[in-house]
Simulated scan of single mutants.
Amino acid sequence: MNTVRIAIIDDDADERKTLQASFERLAQESGSAIVIIEFAGTDDFLDGYDRSFDLICMDIDMPGTDGMSAAQRLRQMDADVPLVFVTNMAQMAIHGYAVHALDFILKPINYYSFSIKMRGILALIGNRRRKSLVFPTTDGFLRISSDNLYYVEVRGHHLSFHTTQGVIRQRDSLRNWEAKLEGLPFERCNNSYLVNLKQVTAVAKDSVQVGCDWLPISRTKKKPFMNALTEYMGGTSV
C-alpha cells in the first residue's frame, strides 16, 4: 500500500486539527495510509516546497499570502499536484478553476460530504501513479513507464511483459512482480495474467480486452478483478 502525503495549510490550529482528524478517520475506514504535514501559513509551505506531496488542502482566507495567490505561485512550481480548497469562502472557492483546483470543501467540515469527495480524490491520486520499470537486454537495458505495460503473462518460470514497445521476456515469478507493482492499478484476471487496469478497453462475459488482446477471466478471480476495475473507473464495488 502506497502512503499518501497530504499538506494542510491553514492559519487556524483548530481547523488544521479538525481536518487532520477527518483524514485519519477516512484512512481508518478505507484502509488507506496517509501522512499529514501541517503548515500555519502559505509562505512556509511554498518556500520549502519539494514536489513530494500527493495532495494539498489549503484555506483561502489567511494572513500574508492568501490561499488563492499561493495557489497561483504553486502552479508555477508544480502544474499537476492535486489541490483542494478547504474554506468558508465559497464565493472565492468557485474561482478555483483558474488554478486547476480539483474541488473545494466548505467549513465547518461535514464528515459525510468530506468522505465522499475525498474517497474519489484519493482514488484519482492512486490512478495517476506510475513507476519506471527497467528490463535488462542483451546489449544494455530498456526503461518503460508502468503505464505502457498492458499485462504480464506467466508460463512456467518465465514471464512475458506485453508492452506498447513489444513483448519482453525474462525468468521471474508473477508473485514477485505483483509486489513490485503494488500500489499501482494491476490485478490478476486469472492465475496466468496480471492486467494493467489503465489499459482495459472492454469486458465481455468472461473475457477482458487489454490493448488488442482478449484474456480470459477465471471464475475464482472474476469478483475481485471486476471490483478492482470498477473501483479504478470511479464506481462502487459490485
Results as ranks from 00 to 15, higher is better:
Ile36Tyr: 06
Tyr111Gly: 11
Val4Trp: 08
Arg5Asp: 09
Gly126Val: 05
His158Phe: 09
Ile105Thr: 13
Asn176Ser: 08
Leu229Gly: 11
Leu149Phe: 04
Lys205Pro: 12
Arg75Ser: 05
Arg73Thr: 09
Asp14Cys: 15
Pro224Leu: 03
Arg219Ala: 06
Phe225Asp: 03
Gly234Glu: 04
Asp11Phe: 11
Phe85Ile: 09
Met58Thr: 08
Arg25Ser: 11
Asp172Ala: 13
Met68Ser: 10
Glu182Val: 02
Asn148Tyr: 06
Val152Ser: 02
Asp172Leu: 08
Asn110Glu: 01
Leu181Gln: 07
Ser32Asn: 05
Asn196Glu: 00
Leu122Arg: 01
Arg155Tyr: 12
Gly64Tyr: 11
Ser113Gly: 12
Ala204Thr: 15
Ser115Lys: 05
Ile94Arg: 05
Ala21Thr: 07
Val134Leu: 02
Val99Trp: 00
Asp43Val: 14
Lys223Arg: 13
Asp103Phe: 04
Thr236Leu: 13
Trp177Phe: 08
Arg119Thr: 09
Leu184Phe: 07
Lys17Ala: 14
Leu74Asn: 02
Phe186Arg: 05
Tyr151Val: 02
Ser132Pro: 02
Gly126Leu: 01
Gln20Phe: 04
Gly41Lys: 11
Thr65Tyr: 14
Leu122Ser: 03
Arg73Trp: 08
Gly31Glu: 04
Asp14Ile: 15
Glu182Asp: 09
Ile116Val: 07
Leu184Gly: 09
Gln72Asp: 09
Glu24Tyr: 10
His162Ser: 11
Asp206Ala: 06
Asn191Ala: 14
Leu19Asp: 15
Lys180Trp: 05
Thr236Gly: 12
Tyr112Trp: 14
Met68Thr: 02
Lys17Arg: 14
Ile60Ala: 06
Thr236Asp: 13
Asp14Gln: 15
Ala33Ser: 14
Asp213His: 13
Lys17Glu: 10
Arg169Glu: 08
Leu174Glu: 07
Ser69Trp: 01
Gly140Ala: 03
Ser218Glu: 11
Ile125Ala: 08
Asn176Cys: 13
Met233Glu: 07
Pro224Tyr: 05
Phe114Cys: 00
Cys57His: 05
Leu174His: 04
Ile168Tyr: 09
Glu153Ile: 00
Lys205Val: 14
Ile36Phe: 02
Gly235Met: 00
Lys198Leu: 07
Leu26Pro: 10
Ile144Gly: 01
His157Phe: 05
Tyr97Trp: 06
Val84Thr: 07
Val200Met: 00
Ile144Val: 04
Gly235Lys: 09
Leu46His: 07
Leu174Asn: 00
